[in-house]
Write a protein that binds this DNA or RNA. Structure first.
Lengths: 222, 222
DNA sequence: GTCTATACCACGATAGAC
DNA sequence: GTCTATCGTGGTATAGAC
């Protein structure tokens, strides 16, 4: 690779940081490239040069965060599997905690959690559908194999289709819970460092119990 | 009310119908007012005259669908309560089915389900956060009172805050499941009239079991 | 009161100079 | 690599016809 004439990497990094703040605070279409580049103190056209489009800027910003998060999830599942006696399997509760709890851990800046990043993950559900679908393709599909394998072991009676349905519900509940923090009337408290992890533990318990629930047979009438 | 000189109501209705098709198919920011007004065969400025903005057009379109849906949910809960012996309460399973199953029922056009409308409900999670928050304020808050009262009766040991957390998880799983239909790799089948109701039954079972799960006490370390 | 034509400004994107 | 200028399209506002 040839030597860079100027601080190209620094410009990229400043853009990614500004994008994290902007997108998390104002949403995808609520954030303009002019606003982001002003905050990053770079030229408007720099976005197109470094990322080719607003869409790719968002995707790279998300992938940078989801990479370590998913790596930690896989690591926790493998640690649990290594600690499991032969003939036994990793429990649903362990799987769900591996899925949910790293959200608090992966985004630590020093002692406290980077809430902007954590919230960002939940907000991934509030972008144009084509965008979140592409993000899922890039950052979740490879992880899905590990996770569904653990689920199949823990739920040997369920068909692959039923596993996938439950995985949908699980992911939806998790992203929605992160995104909806403090948005409902009555529950005014915002997401903060102190209540993030207890919320995630409640969520993991909710999901684990839901996964264990028997699948109902279809009936004719509502 | 004075007599209308022209077909104001017809213009409104055509705009709402076109908006349903457009917003559901292309998402909120993926649908332009020029596209919607062309489809409705009305002038661009008609949106501003009848709804004052794109935002309000979307909100009115959603409220028109969520009204009957929530009315049916409340009706089902009250029917279940009426059929419950004194000293007993409506079960979690009944509550969850009342919450979830009307999605299939409320959107019937004649014999089959209007899938555009059903999908629209799920897509409400993929709009700018400020929009879905406003929709929740207008269409869900009044319903929340009935629903949380039933939940409190079914789960007398939980604090109001814990009830609200679980309601978050419930709503997130439901909206996400509707929105995510057919978007994951591996599960390619699209939402259709035949598989909507079985999916909703699976979802209701998932949620009911999750709601019943004991809330974990917070621990120190992940 | 209802509808139309049109102007306005902000947006994302890009070409080409430096 | 960076910047300026510019293009097409978006939501919105308004003046005026009917």
């Amino acid at each position: 690779m040839p030597a860079l004439r100027k601080s190209s990497a620094a410009t990229r990094e400043r853009l990614l940081r500004a994008a994290e703040r902007c997108f998390t605070e104002h949403g995808y279409e609520g954030s303009s490239l002019r606003q982001i580049t002003r905050m990053a103190r770079v030229n408007l056209a720099a976005v197109n040069y470094h990322f080719s489009s607003k869409r790719e800027l968002w995707l790279e910003m998300m992938q940078r965060r989801l990479g370590p998060l998913n790596a930690e999830r896989v690591r926790l599942i493998e640690v649990a599997r290594a600690a499991t006696p032969v003939g036994s399997v990793v429990s649903l509760e362990q799987i769900c905690e591996a899925m949910v709890l790293p959200v608090a851990k992966a985004f630590r800046d020093g002692k406290s959690c980077n809430l902007t990043a954590a919230r960002m993950v939940g907000r991934a559900i509030s972008v144009p559908p084509a965008l979140s679908k592409e993000l899922s393709r890039r950052s979740l599909d490879q992880y899905w194999r590990v996770f569904s394998a653990a689920l199949r072991d823990a739920l040997p009676d369920l068909s692959p289709a039923e596993i996938e349905w439950k995985f949908y519900f699980l992911m939806s509940a998790m992203l929605g819970a992160l995104a909806w923090q403090g948005r409902q009337q009555g529950l005014e408290r915002e997401l903060n460092t102190d209540n993030l992890e207890p919320m995630l533990r409640r969520l993991a318990a909710f999901i684990a119990s839901g996964l264990r629930a028997p699948m109902p047979v279809a009936k004719a009438k509502v």
